[in-house]
Design a binder for these strands. Structure first.
Lengths: 344, 344
DNA sequence: CTGAAAGCGCTTACAG
DNA sequence: CTGAAAGCGCTTACAG
């Protein structure tokens, strides 16, 4: 106890919790002793006695690893600053007892709030389990921002439009689009942005150039295989996430096509790999770190004066790199290139 | 309280903690009520009263993101299974007050153990701060396994030898090696493995072919720029991690060289990006998930009968992919290729 | 501005 | 095999 060393009793608590109404002299004295004794209040005791646990949970479903990594980075830093700790939990999106799993976790841990990443933020059972226990929740990039839940997201539609407009500006007209999985909210939003930009520029949307995908490298490669086998090939591909874009690139290079000479490729996310391939990938930088940072803020906001709901939209950024270029003359008709030798 | 519903009092505690000496009948009854009331003991109360916090900390320094991601995956899963929770904390390896930061974190959280990843596991100040507080620690792939600390690692030397032998077997003789940063233990180990394999096969180690690097993409690209400008170029490059290998690949492709036709490239780690590039990267799969899983096990082992020290070596695997191939005839002398057109 | 009491919800010895 | 008591180390009202 810092009490003996100091002079006061649980004024220490007041000082450490930065409560108002402590004499400056006393405060300084207490702080000095705390420093000398390296006294740190125990989280479990504070948590048990008080209303807060100083724990924030980050709930994710693994596959979207790069996405989670970036979000975690932002959340961890903000938690540190605020004297909180970040607890990470992974959970299978399709587990039959997913609500029980969530409930078990939350009721034992009693975090002051939970941050949900896609696709969990669109899972009604997870949401229900959480709200039933009264746990504050922030959804990152959810599909629908309903139920008065707090959400933080970016403008997927607008960003997809920007990517598409970039390709059009580079002279591309036959632009393929690779979709994300149907159960992920971002998929529809990004496709919408693509279509809107195409229509706005008066370009037709060829159904043969809109391929299914599931945000994996393999699905991108598969889509590329189909697209590049078409009689009239696209000159540009907009994959709605980076992993798929990398799949397209790998497949194109494997077939001996030049990127971006014969095919421009754009992705979405600015995942770690995007800058590590050759040519580096044109993509959209999701402000994931900032989003997670804000999510923590919304959860630990001292007063409860914060409206139980909020919908913050963070700024994204188009990152133009080497995988996109102006359409080369007659590229559309250069069917033979697929069989060309990769080396002279 | 499940007490009213059941019949007993804090026998509930015994049942929930799986202590021996409870009548089968009572146990079943308690369990039933627990299930019905969805009763979950509060972590903070258990932690305050008992000796365990059910919290495991994962301490990392960000840059090694892929490494951390894999380790975290394994740790999170094992924690769940065991009813523990994983708290993640990032910390700057070169912060002047790093020990104070660690101390602050640990003394508030009181985790039952901490898992340290490189390079933190080789930071004496971090180690000292932790052991002073009496926090059990497991080091993942540390440089020196001293001080009776528990360690989990792989055979870096052996794995690097395997990679080198693979390249030699493919007919390569002029093999370049790109080192990791000096303060990271794995750097020296991997270089040692490379040199040992070269010597074992009676191949000379040309100092001009051993380049500095710091485990980043940029340093790999830089090394490649130097290597490919040599009069007598290497026909294969062994970069001691994947990020650098990807840098080498990007630079080689940029110069119009064929990979693996003109240059074979191998990495180390099997990071997420390794399989997403074209050609996919030959590398070594670090058993990070299993290592982290075991680290958690060592930390939560119920009895204290576990020796305070342990040094477990996990099996790795050489992953041969498309970036390595047999040396093409006369590749060493094909200096002109760098200026060749990438496309016919 | 500061202190004494009660209590958060469990586990740890200790009795029966 | 099971219970009653004490206490873990803080915070929350409540007095002064």
């Amino acid at each position: 106890m810092a009490r003996e060393a100091g002079v006061s009793i649980k004024t220490v608590s007041r000082v450490l919790n930065r409560e108002a109404g402590v004499h400056e002299h006393t405060r300084a004295q207490v702080l000095a002793v705390v420093e000398r004794l390296k006294y740190r209040p125990k989280l479990s005791a504070r948590s048990l006695a008080g209303a807060r646990s100083f724990l924030i949970g980050l709930l994710y479903y693994d596959p979207s690893a790069a996405f989670v990594g970036a979000a975690q980075k932002g959340a961890v830093v903000r938690c540190r600053e605020a004297g909180y700790h970040l607890v990470v939990e992974s959970i299978e999106d399709h587990a039959p007892d997913i609500d029980a799993q969530v409930d078990r976790m939350v009721s034992a841990l009693r975090p002051d709030g939970m941050i949900l990443t896609p696709p969990l933020c669109d899972n009604p059972r997870v949401l229900k389990a959480l709200t039933e226990r009264g746990t504050p929740v922030v959804l990152i990039s959810p599909g629908e921002h309903d139920a008065g839940l707090m959400t933080v997201r970016m403008d997927d539609v607008g960003a997809a439009e920007e990517v598409t407009r970039l390709l059009i500006r580079l002279g591309h007209e036959r632009i393929a689009f690779i979709r994300g999985p149907a159960d992920q909210a971002a998929s529809a939003l990004r496709q919408h942005g693509f279509e809107r930009a195409m229509k706005a520029q008066g370009l037709p949307i060829d159904p043969a150039l809109v391929c299914p995908g599931d945000f994996t490298f393999a699905s991108g490669a598969r889509a590329a295989r189909d697209l590049l086998a078409l009689r009239e090939r696209p000159t540009a591909v907009f994959a709605s996430n980076d992993d798929m874009a990398l799949g397209v690139m790998a497949e194109a290079l494997r077939l001996g096509l030049g990127v971006p000479a014969d095919l421009s490729i754009a992705g979405f996310d600015d995942s770690p790999g995007a800058a590590l391939v050759y040519p580096p990938l044109t993509t959209v930088r999701q402000p994931l770190e900032e989003m997670a940072r804000l999510a923590v803020d919304l959860l630990i906001t001292p007063g409860e004066q914060e409206p139980e709901s909020a919908d913050r939209v963070m700024a994204h950024r188009l990152v133009v790199r080497g995988s996109t270029a102006t359409r080369s003359r007659g590229a559309t008709r250069a069917q033979g290139a697929a069989n060309a030798m990769p080396q002279p």
